[in-house]
Amino acid sequence: MTLFLAMATQVVETAAAPASHGSSSMPFLLVGLWVLLLSVFVGFEVIQKVPPTLHTPLMSGSNAISGITIVGSLYCVGNDYPLSAGILGILAIVCAMINVVGGFVVTDRMLAMFSAKGGKK
């Protein structure tokens, strides 16, 4: 119980810390949460009423978009990070790029079958 309390205090204290010597404008957390809220809403909306035919391509296309972590991975190879982080960054880059390129190409291949058919008709 005391351990739990100690943990909770530490969490609260560190949460408050950056705000005290804080920046002039809104902290990133709040901006980020706004962005998150709106994007989730958009994500819910854009996917409604999709015909079942497109479920697989949609999934694999959005899967490719989730490779956006490539952007984060690139930062980890920058000067802000020590060598060991850079190595993790390189691993992340390889994984994310496979995800991105593989995802988009596979989706394109699937969709090509729909449009090839459309062309003949």
């Binding site: 962005v35 994007s39 958009v42 994500g43 819910f44 949609l58 899967n63 978009i65 956006i68 972590t69």
Partner: peptide, 13 residues
Amino acid sequence: NLLIVAGSLVGAS
């Protein structure tokens, strides 16, 4: 922000 937008789009959909 880009990571948040793209990530939560995929997450929500």
